[in-house]
Simulated scan of single mutants.
Amino acid sequence: MRLILLGPPGAGKGTQAQRLVERYGIVQLSTGDMLRAAVAAGTEIGKKAKAVMDAGQLVSDDIVIGIVSDRIEEPDAKNGFVLDGFPRTIAQAEALEKLLASKSMKLDAVIEFQVDETKLVDRIVRRAEEAKAAGQPVRKDDNPEVFVKRLEEFRALTAALTPFYRERGQLTSIDGMAPIDVVSEEIRKALS
């Protein structure tokens, strides 16, 4: 099973990705984690990424696609994967489509979390308070000012992926404001 989770920051993608990993025996692929792992492993693409990151620049789509390409070939991704934080742009979505086709793979679903953006700030503030109360580290993006910037970036770049995948008949929209277990059940129904 190969999935993409779409939605703004705070929509619950990470929480649901973890549940999908447990339920289906697939891996969650986060581009940030994959970049760090490729750099640490000193792979060819990891060396390119390190040089770009050391120069303080954003890693190009070509490098990110190369890292995704390498990662989905690893044994633990054989049963499938859920992409988290990728693709972020139409160009990345098109490159992913070509990459998967070149490996005789296809996406099984793209799940979009529809949310009330005005309530997302409350959600991330609550998430930060719960982490503090539990003695856990607070995510640096669980800060209202940082969050608003991430939301603006999402609207500018990533929101265009909804019509992109809808036109391909791959998009399923789910109410991301529902309770966590309800969202999980809606995803399960969409995938069955």
Rank of each mutant, 00 (worst) to 15 (best):
T89P: 04
G176S: 07
V110T: 07
I72Y: 09
V115C: 14
V115M: 02
D76Q: 11
G56S: 11
Q92L: 07
A11M: 04
L120H: 07
I180E: 13
A190W: 01
A93Q: 07
Q170E: 13
A131G: 10
R126G: 13
K103C: 13
A11G: 13
Q28S: 08
L58F: 12
L100V: 09
K140S: 15
D84V: 00
M53E: 10
V121Y: 08
D108R: 00
V52D: 11
E74H: 03
E97C: 08
L151D: 04
D61N: 14
L120V: 03
A93Y: 03
A11E: 07
R127S: 14
E186D: 15
R88H: 09
E145P: 08
D108A: 01
D141V: 02
A95G: 13
A55C: 11
A159G: 04
P137A: 05
D175T: 00
A109S: 12
A41H: 06
S192K: 02
L100F: 13
R19V: 12
V146A: 14
V39F: 09
A160K: 14
A133M: 09
R126S: 14
A156G: 08
I124W: 03
A49D: 12
V146P: 11
L29T: 01
D181K: 06
I90P: 12
P87W: 01
N79Y: 01
A38F: 05
V148S: 09
R127V: 12
K98V: 15
Y24D: 05
A109E: 09
S192T: 06
M53C: 10
R155E: 14
E186H: 08
V21T: 09
L171M: 09
Q18C: 01
D84W: 00
R139W: 02
A156C: 01
V183L: 07
R71Y: 04
I111P: 04
Y165I: 09
S69N: 15
R168F: 06
A101N: 14
K119T: 15
L107V: 03
L5C: 03
P75I: 01
I45W: 06
I124S: 09
N79K: 12
G169W: 08
G169V: 12
E145A: 13
G56V: 12
V148M: 13
D62C: 05
T162H: 10
A41V: 05
F147D: 04
G14L: 07
I124G: 12
P179R: 03
G169R: 05
V146R: 11
L171F: 03
R19N: 13
L35V: 08
A128N: 12
E97F: 01
F164T: 11
L20R: 00
P8Y: 04
V39H: 11
